[in-house]
Design a protein around this nucleic acid. Structure first.
Length: 643
RNA sequence: GGGCCCGUAGCUCAGCCAGGACAGAGCGCUGGCCUCCUAAGCCAGUGGUCGGGGGUUCAAAUCCCCCCGGGCCCGCCA
C-alpha cells in the first residue's frame, strides 16, 4: 500500500486524537477543522465549543502535540490562540522532505485517502429518453453522474454506473409511428444519410408529435393552438434530411385516430409483439448509437445499459403488481389498481418519524393514491421504475443506489420510495437516493424536444472545439492538424464539464452558448492551461534532482502556501466524494491554479540561480501539477501537457 | 391551495447541512505588465443592508419562525 502524503496523514491522526479527547464523532471533528488565516497556522480547531464539556484548550494542545509525535508525525506544532482555538502549524521543511521522498520512491505524492467504510454503490445517470439527441440538460446530468462515480471510486467504494433506456411509453411510441410511416430502418438510414441516429429519430419524433398535436387541436377547433404550433412545424420542414416531411405529416393527418394508433403501438410493445419489438428496438438502437458518440466526446462510460422493456417482458413488473395486490395498502382508485400512499403515510410514517426522515418525507405532504396500472392493462412509468429499482439492488448487491435525475422529478422519486416501502422494501426505499439537480435553461426559450427546440450538446461541443482549435493552432505553429483537433476536443469537453459541475446541483443554470465560448478564468480550460504551464517547466528542466533540494527554500511566502494548498487536494477530493459535491473539488482547483499562476509570474523556476532552491521549486511545480492532473481526472477532464 | 428548491459585490458563484478569529473568488469596470518557464496569464484599484423582519446563542450568511421575490412539482405523461 502506498503511503499517504504528510498533510493527509496529519489530518487523519489529528481527527482521531481530537475525537477521542473531546468525545465527538470523527466525522464531525473533521468537518469542524478549518483553514485559518495564515498567521494562525495551517489547520485549526475551535476547542471553545467543548469548554462546557470541560475541555481545556491549553491541555488539549499539549496532549495533541505529544500524541502526534508518538504517531511519527514530528512536523506539526500545536498551540492555542484567541478565545480557544487549537492551531496546528506545519514545518514546511519537513513537508518538502516527505514529499520529495514520496516522489523519489513512488513517483507520486497525492493519493485520495480511502474510506473506512467501502460500500457497493449504483450511480444511474443520464438515462435520456431515446427519441432525440442529448441537450445541455443531459450534459449536466452526465457531468454530475460521471463525476460522482469517479469521486466515489477514488474514495474506495465499488461503483456501478448504469444507463436506463426508457423505451417503453408514449414518447417512444410517437417516434415509432413516424418511423413506421416512413418504413425505414433507422440504423441503416442514419448511416446512408451520414447523420447521427439520434438526430434522425429526434427530427422524426418532433415532426410526428407536432402533426399529432396539430390535427388533434384542429379536431377540437382550437385554432389558436394550431396557429401557435405551426411555426415549429415549418421550422422542422427546413431541416428535413431526406424528403420525409410531407409523408409523415400527410399520413398522420389522414389517419382516423393517430392517438389510438400510438396507444396500440405502446400496448403491443409491452406485450412483446414481434412487429413492434422490431420497430422500436431498431429505432432505439439508432438513437443509442448516437448517444454513445456524444457520451464518448464527454468521456462518459457506463458499466451497464438496462432496457425498461426488459423489466416488463421479464415479468418483474408483473411481480410488482402481484405484490401490490397482496399488500395491505392495495386499493382501487378512479377504477384503476393503485397503492394507498396517503394511508401508508398516515399509518406507517407519521408514527415512525425516523423512518419518515430516512425516506425524506416532507412535512405536510398531500399525495393521491399511486396508480400502478392503466385501465387498458398497460403499466405506468412508476410501476416499471419500482421493478427497475429493485433490479438495480438485486444484480449489483448494492448498499445504495443514486439516481441522478432532475429536480422536477422530486415528487415522483418520493412516490417511488414510498411505494417500495409500502410493499415492504424498506431497505431499498431508504437507500434509493435521488441526486437531484436543477435544470439547465437557455437565455431565451425553454428547451423542448417535442417541438424540436433544443441546444444540442454536440453543437455546443463543436462550437467550443472550433474556437479552441484556432487558439491551439496559433500557439503551436507547426503542430499536426490531428493533434490540434485532439487537443481542441479535450478543451471543449473541459469547458462544458467544468461549467456544469462547478455550480452546486440545486442551483439552476442559465446556459448562454455565447458566454460558454469564453475559455478564460474560472473555467476548465484555465485549469488545463495551468497544468500545461506546470508541465512545460518540468519538461524544460529535464528532471528533478532530489538530492540537491534545499527544503528551506520552499518554507515561506507563496512557495509555502502553494506547498500546503497542493497537499490539500486528496482530502478535498475525499470531502467532495463524501458530500456528493463535485463543486468542492472544482472550486479548490480554481484556487490552486490562481495561486500557482500568481507565483509563476513572480518567481521563475528555470532561471533560479541557486540549485537547491531551483529543485525545491521544481518539486513544488511537480506537486501542483499532480494535484491539478488528479483533480481534473476526477472531474473527467483531460490534463494536457501542452495546449 | 399544498410541498420542495433558490435568493451573498453590477453579473456568475464559494461559504450554510456539521454556528466561531475582519464575508471570499471569478467576470465586468479603471490603470498597468510579453527581449524573461505558454499573456487561455499576472499586478493594482473598484465593488456587499449575506432578500426583509423577529428569535435562539458568549457568537448567526450559517440554526428556528414569519414575510417578500423567482423556479419546479402536485396526470390512467415520462
Amino acid at each position: 500500500m502506498r503511503r499517504l502524503d504528510p498533510y493527509t496523514r496529519l489530518i487523519e491522526a489529528l481527527v482521531e486524537e481530537i475525537a477521542r479527547r473531546v468525545g465527538e464523532d470523527e466525522l464531525k471533528v473533521l468537518y469542524l477543522l478549518q483553514i485559518p488565516r495564515e498567521e494562525h497556522g495551517d489547520v485549526s480547531f475551535p476547542a471553545i465549543r467543548y469548554r462546557r464539556k470541560g475541555v481545556d484548550p491549553e491541555r488539549l494542545a499539549a496532549e495533541l502535540e505529544e500524541a502526534l509525535k508518538s504517531r511519527g508525525i514530528d512536523y506539526a506544532s500545536v498551540s492555542v490562540a484567541g478565545p480557544g482555538y487549537i492551531n496546528v502549524k506545519l514545518d514546511a521543511r519537513r513537508l518538502v522532505e516527505e514529499v520529495s521522498s514520496l516522489y523519489r520512491r513512488t513517483g507520486s505524492a497525492l493519493e485520495v485517502p480511502k474510506t473506512k467504510e467501502p460500500l457497493t454503490l449504483v450511480v444511474e445517470h443520464t438515462s435520456a429518453n431515446p427519441i432525440h439527441p442529448m441537450h445541455m440538460g443531459h450534459a449536466r446530468n452526465m457531468s454530475l453522474g460521471d463525476t460522482l462515480a469517479r469521486l466515489l471510486r477514488a474514495r474506495g467504494h465499488r461503483v456501478n454506473t448504469r444507463f436506463y433506456v426508457d423505451d417503453v411509453g408514449k414518447q417512444v411510441a410517437v417516434a415509432a409511428l413516424g418511423v413506421r410511416i416512413l418504413g425505414i430502418d433507422p440504423v441503416e438510414e442514419a448511416r446512408r444519410l451520414g447523420v447521427k441516429g439520434d438526430d434522425l429519430v429526434g427530427w422524426i419524433y418532433a415532426v410526428t408529435h407536432l402533426s399529432v398535436d396539430i390535427i388533434k387541436a384542429k379536431h377540437e377547433g382550437n385554432t389558436e393552438k394550431v396557429e401557435s404550433l405551426l411555426p415549429y412545424l415549418v421550422d422542422l420542414k427546413d431541416r428535413d434530411p431526406a424528403g420525409y416531411f410531407d409523408r409523415i405529416v400527410n399520413t398522420v393527418w389522414s389517419m382516423e385516430d393517430p392517438e389510438a394508433e400510438i396507444s396500440r403501438i405502446m400496448r403491443n410493445y409491452e406485450l412483446g409483439r414481434e412487429e413492434e419489438k422490431r420497430l422500436i428496438r431498431r429505432m432505439v438502437e439508432a438513437v443509442l448509437e448516437g448517444f454513445r458518440k456524444t457520451l464518448a466526446r464527454m468521456r462518459v462510460e457506463f458499466d451497464a445499459w438496462d432496457w425498461e422493456s426488459d423489466m416488463v417482458w421479464s415479468s418483474r413488473v408483473g411481480r410488482i403488481l402481484e405484490e401490490a395486490r397482496r399488500s395491505p395498502y392495495y386499493t382501487v382508485y378512479k377504477g384503476a389498481e393503485a397503492l394507498d400512499l396517503p394511508r401508508f403515510i398516515k399509518e406507517r410514517l407519521l408514527t415512525d418519524p425516523e423512518l419518515a426522515a430516512r425516506i425524506k418525507l416532507p412535512r405536510a405532504l398531500e399525495v393521491p393514491p399511486l396508480i400502478l396500472r392503466r385501465s387498458d392493462g398497460t403499466t405506468l412509468y412508476v410501476t416499471r421504475d419500482m421493478a427497475y429499482t429493485l433490479y438495480k439492488f438485486e444484480v449489483t448487491g448494492a448498499d445504495r443506489v443514486y439516481n441522478v435525475i432532475g429536480a422536477d422529478q422530486r415528487l415522483s422519486q418520493l412516490q417511488l420510495r414510498l411505494a417500495l416501502a409500502a410493499l415492504g422494501y424498506v431497505r431499498e426505499a431508504v437507500n434509493t437516493i435521488h441526486y437531484d439537480y436543477e435544470l439547465v435553461s437557455l437565455p431565451g426559450e425553454r428547451m423542448s424536444g417535442r417541438k424540436g427546440v433544443l441546444v444540442k450538446l454536440d453543437d455546443i461541443l463543436d462550437g467550443l472545439k472550433n474556437r479552441a482549435a484556432e487558439e491551439v493552432r496559433a500557439r503551436n505553429p507547426g503542430a499536426s492538424e490531428e493533434w490540434v483537433e485532439e487537443t481542441a476536443e479535450k478543451i471543449a469537453r473541459a469547458a462544458v464539464r467544468f461549467r456544469l459541475v462547478q455550480v452546486s446541483a440545486p442551483k439552476p443554470i442559465v446556459f448562454d452558448p455565447e458566454k460558454a465560448l469564453d475559455l478564460t478564468a474560472n473555467s476548465g480550460p484555465y485549469l488545463q492551461y495551468t497544468h500545461a504551464r506546470a508541465s512545460s517547466i518540468l519538461r524544460k528542466l529535464g528532471g528533478i534532482n532530489y538530492s540537491v533540494i534545499d527544503p528551506s527554500a520552499c518554507s515561506s511566502g507563496k512557495r509555502r502556501r502553494l506547498l500546503v494548498l497542493a497537499l490539500r487536494m486528496p482530502l478535498t477530493a475525499a470531502k467532495a466524494a463524501d458530500d456528493l459535491a463535485p463543486e468542492i473539488l472544482a472550486v479548490y482547483l480554481i484556487g490552486l491554479a490562481d495561486l500557482f499562476n500568481s507565483w509563476y509570474q513572480e518567481d521563475s523556476v528555470l532561471h533560479e540561480p541557486d540549485e537547491g532552491a531551483k529543485h525545491c521549486k521544481a518539486l513544488l511545480v511537480a506537486l501542483v501539477r499532480e494535484a491539478l492532473a488528479r483533480g481534473l481526472e476526477l472531474l473527467g477532464i483531460d490534463a494536457p501537457e501542452r495546449m
